[in-house]
Design a protein around this nucleic acid. Sequence first.
DNA 1: GGCTAAATGCAACATTATTACAATTAGCTC
DNA 2: GAGCTAATTGTAATAATGTTGCATTTAGCC
Lengths: 140, 140
Amino acid sequence: MVRDSIRILQAQGHKATRPRKLVLEVLGEIENPLSPYDIQGILHTRGKYLNHVTIYRILDLLCSLNLAHKMLSSGGFVKCSLDATEGCHRFMVCQHCGAIREFADKELCQEENDFAQNFGFHTEHHLSEFSGLCSRCYKK
Amino acid sequence: MVRDSIRILQAQGHKATRPRKLVLEVLGEIENPLSPYDIQGILHTRGKYLNHVTIYRILDLLCSLNLAHKMLSSGGFVKCSLDATEGCHRFMVCQHCGAIREFADKELCQEENDFAQNFGFHTEHHLSEFSGLCSRCYKK
DNA sequence: GGCTAAATGCAACATTATTACAATTAGCTC
DNA sequence: GAGCTAATTGTAATAATGTTGCATTTAGCC
């Protein structure tokens, strides 16, 4: 919910401004990754105007607080749907409808770490997106 | 080797042009991800000029033939160092020296597919990068 | 209501990416 | 090796995306 994000913002000493609420509103509604200009466009159709610089800055903030993620493959932004404490976050991206599903799995994470360790590599973060078909689109 | 890539290009009916050789040469030498303009700059210091449009097009082609990869984390391009038949490709990216190590592992791939399957997701591709410290930099 | 730091808007600019079309060239044939 | 042609590259113009410094506005406090 948008309300939760606002609360977290404020708890960290950030203000609950109109532009921030608007951006969170859009990210909360739309499941597909959105670019800053996408967000601007969507708000525009609703008669609300935000400067693109503002949107860039808000998205930076949201990402730094783990309230949003920047998708690596597309560069678009999505609202974070997991608790920050759940471990390394990954994504399933449906090639058909574009919907994102976020998940976390500690076991898989550990296996990957072990795998890398065999090569002498010391892993700090996992960047991982699976692309394919979500259950809905697969049935069709 | 660059020579191998050229052979693959030609086998697929593409011409072995001077610009393509130059781009492959740079990607073959430098281990870190390079943007199109990086490549242009490097060539420039060597007294060779390529138009950026050409470089964009060449990189598209190389990626479509799996002779290069676009890195998720940086958006930069690296030369592919594995055989295309080896399965899904992943990367270890050293945060310190920036070096990329590419690898493939069918078991890990299968586990990830199974994991996604539990959510009803049908995986087609894995995009995966580990960031951390390579063996060299970890020792320091 | 008034104050102040934080946040936004604005303008200008920098960087990165794309398009349409003209010029060039690799690889073929003779 | 000269000539041909489709493929490729270069050019120029433009679009899209991202950044910076500074003036203006506003949320949250008293």
